[in-house]
């Protein structure tokens, strides 16, 4: 197990969510579900974060913000789309100002469905994301060896 997956730090951005998924992301971090006891800490700084939790769908105005945060995060990094809107656009898929799911703007590694997404589903998705993070870290190491 790599260092990052033992205590992954998460960053959360609300693309155009209805808040339902946002408060569930926070609820997962707070007493009741309390993933902080596993060392999963919410940070506001993209450069500190390993896992990017995105809620809500993408539109023209928030697409660059999303990409900016993603680009600022350092490798290895994992993106988790939380909720139906982040996965596909959900109930708002045919709104005029909705492009679609988060994968329309940045690559997504794990999809957590639900409207609103349940904290259990978020925790599951983050645990799955840790596997991806591990793989990415290993691949990165391999590349560095080759480069050296």
């Amino acid at each position: 197990m790599g260092f990052a997956s033992k205590s992954p730090w998460v960053i959360h951005y609300d693309a155009s969510s209805c808040n339902g998924c946002d408060i569930e992301v926070l609820a997962a971090l707070c007493p009741g579900y309390d993933v902080e006891r596993f060392g999963i800490i919410n940070t506001g700084n993209p450069k500190h974060a390993d896992i990017f939790l995105v809620t809500g769908s993408v539109n023209e105005q928030n697409k660059p913000v999303l990409q900016e945060i993603y680009n600022q995060m350092l490798e290895p990094k994992v993106v988790v789309a939380c909720g139906c809107c982040a996965c596909t656009g959900g109930v708002f898929h045919d709104c005029y100002n909705v492009i679609g799911g988060v994968d329309q703007a940045i690559p997504v590694d794990v999809y957590a469905p639900g409207c609103a997404v349940r904290p259990e589903a978020i925790i599951d998705a983050v645990v799955e994301g840790l596997g991806v993070l591990e793989q990415k870290a290993a691949a990165l190491k391999e590349n560095q060896k080759k480069g050296a």
């Binding site: 609300d14 539109n59 105005q61 708002f92 709104c95 005029y96 100002n97 909705v98």
Partner: peptide, 14 residues
């Protein structure tokens, strides 16, 4: 504002 404008008032049409 405008980062999470979805335009759901027009969904009454569908």
């Amino acid at each position: 504002i405008g980062f999470i404008h979805r335009g759901l008032e027009r969904l009454t049409q569908t």
